Amino acid sequence: MQKTELIHLHDLLGTVSTDLYEEGTLATDDLSAYRDLGTSPMSIRGSRADHEAAVIELADALAGAIESDRGDASTSEPHEDAESPVTA
């Protein structure tokens, strides 16, 4: 996958994470390993490898949040703020 494609995918996953955060499925703590990488979708000068690692980590975090939400009998409360958990 080309670097520009990875950046685009990274941005799309960031949008999904914002949606999941707003509906209460994703907590900001779920993204701690992703944030530790220090590469956001806006890090255009980041290397291809940095974006690839970030995409993998972000996708894993999103999958984990969705999976735990499916198994959770209680419903989460939606978040009122619209700030993205990825770019925050």
Rank of each mutant, 00 (worst) to 15 (best):
L9W: 10
H51T: 02
T75W: 00
L26R: 09
S17Q: 04
L13P: 03
E22N: 14
Y34M: 08
D81T: 12
A49M: 10
T18R: 15
L26P: 05
E23D: 06
T28V: 15
H8E: 10
L31E: 06
H51Y: 09
T15C: 11
I66S: 05
D19W: 07
A61M: 01
Q2T: 14
D29Q: 12
A53L: 06
E5W: 03
A63M: 07
S47V: 07
E67Y: 14
D72M: 11
G64P: 03
H79D: 02
H8N: 05
D19E: 11
D30L: 05
G71C: 04
S47N: 04
L13H: 08
A33I: 10
G46D: 11
D30W: 06
S84G: 03
L26M: 07
A73K: 15
S40T: 15
G38K: 11
A63P: 00
L58E: 02
P85M: 07
V16C: 13
V86T: 09
P41E: 05
L13S: 03
D50P: 00
A49Q: 14
D50M: 06
V86Y: 05
I44D: 08
A63G: 03
S47E: 04
G46N: 08
T18Q: 12
L26Y: 02
D29H: 09
S43R: 06
K3Y: 03
D11H: 08
E5T: 15
G64A: 10
S43K: 08
V16M: 14
I66C: 07
G38C: 07
T28R: 15
L31R: 08
V55Y: 01
D69Y: 12
L9M: 05
L20M: 14
L6Q: 03
D60V: 13
A33F: 04
T28D: 14
T39G: 05
S47I: 05
E80K: 07
P85R: 09
T4E: 13
G71P: 00
G64I: 06
K3Q: 10
T18V: 04
S43C: 14
L58F: 02
V86I: 14
D11T: 10
E67I: 08
S74K: 14
A27I: 03
E57Y: 01
G14Y: 08
I66M: 11
Q2H: 09
D50F: 00
E5H: 12
E80T: 10
H8R: 11
D29R: 13
M1F: 13
T87L: 10
E23G: 02
